[in-house]
Design a protein around this nucleic acid. Structure first.
Lengths: 209, 209
DNA sequence: CGCGCCACTGAGCGCACGCTTAGGAACGCC
DNA sequence: GGCGTTCCTAAGCGTGCGCTCAGTGGCGCG
């Protein structure tokens, strides 16, 4: 499965590598609840209920409610990092790599908008050391994208005066997809990815095909 | 005071038209607290404490904690709508109007990032009818921006294939400033406005000066 | 069959929440 | 001074939270 296909594939089992089964169901239930109402407005009773368990069962698998958020954030950000890494490591011109990166990154945020919402907008609920760890993961993702844009600027392929600023804008654009995207809306994740890749290529001053 | 200056001016008294004084202090305290920790993680005791009052004093001026958020959202969105309206109503080409709109809108979200954070990311905490009302205000802002982009597309000034999609992306970009902007960061609100105006002009395929 | 193991439940602890109520200080007005 | 109004506080009510713990059912294993 190449980087392009990875984003769209298997919406079904996003948490496949969480075991045992009960722990996985809890993660799924928590993501749903956190995305819908926010971390602080979600109760452990609600999470356990959605997973078909009693409230006490949650604490067999996770020490606290915060640890659930931490696990979700870790797995989610790792996935985001892998997507960006695959795009950055692919061959081709800077424009081709940027197109791939934005298309898959934006598409992932649309496709998995519930997970993305949680990992992008509920981070502040993490404890300080967990927060710092996740922030580090996020910085690595940023760096990969910045390097692509820097490459294009260096080679003259892009006309970007402010590489860090442009990187920030591109990431911000992709991440914010998680906020507004609705599964029953007029756009498919694929369409969002294509639109955003096109818009971003213009932003960096590449020749649009 | 013209539309361009309006955004940057008087960071000090953002809530000048809230009276009496105690009600205004409560709004200020609530915005600070909501922006820092989120609506649900903020307690009425915390808000009252920041405003230098006892917890009970809050309920003299506001019926519930939710009403505080509603008032903040209403005033904030009205301000955002006025900024966009001033830019849309200004004279000049579509490119000039779009530049002004993005510059002031993005700058406002940077300058007032605490307020903006609350009104853009805590809306879901509102009750259903308050939420619907605020959503209406937001749709009016969207429409103003879309019209500018549509004008440019119609006149051939812009090359935008997907006007609603481009509008969505531009708004998303500006709004998300509130999420990442830090007052002690490397960029001033003016710089953010200028950078974003430039990036957006490229996005719509206008000739960049 | 008997035993140990362990995921799980029912009941509930202690706490902090949103919000209420009774009462009082400060002030304007006659 | 007497009185009403406005704005506020101290105290606390009822609720639902995150989390705990003693006990249990069902399973694998000899």
């Amino acid at each position: 499965m190449d980087a392009e296909a990875q984003g769209a594939a298997q919406t079904g089992e996003e948490w496949a590598d969480v075991t045992p089964d009960a722990a996985r169901r809890l993660v799924g239930a928590a993501v749903e609840a956190f995305a819908e109402r926010g971390y602080h407005a979600t109760t452990t009773r609600d999470i356990a209920g959605r997973a078909g368990m009693s409230p006490a069962a949650l604490y067999i698998h996770y020490k606290t409610k915060e640890e659930l958020l931490y696990r979700i954030s870790g797995i989610g950000h790792e996935k985001a990092l892998r997507i960006m890494g695959a795009a950055a490591g692919a061959g081709g011109s800077a424009a081709e790599r940027l197109t791939g990166a934005v298309r898959t990154f934006a598409r992932w945020h649309a496709e998995h908008h519930t997970t993305a919402r949680v990992i992008q907008y509920e981070l502040q609920a993490l404890g300080p050391e967990h927060y710092a760890e996740i922030t580090g993961q996020r910085r690595r993702t940023d760096r990969l994208l910045r390097q692509i844009i820097q490459d294009g600027a260096d080679s003259g392929e892009f006309k970007a005066d402010d590489v860090p600023g442009t990187t920030l804008a591109v990431l911000s654009l992709c991440v914010d997809v998680a906020r507004w995207f609705a599964a029953d809306g007029p756009r498919t994740p694929d369409e969002v990815g294509a639109l955003y890749a096109d818009l971003v290529l213009r932003m960096v001053g590449a020749d649009v095909a």
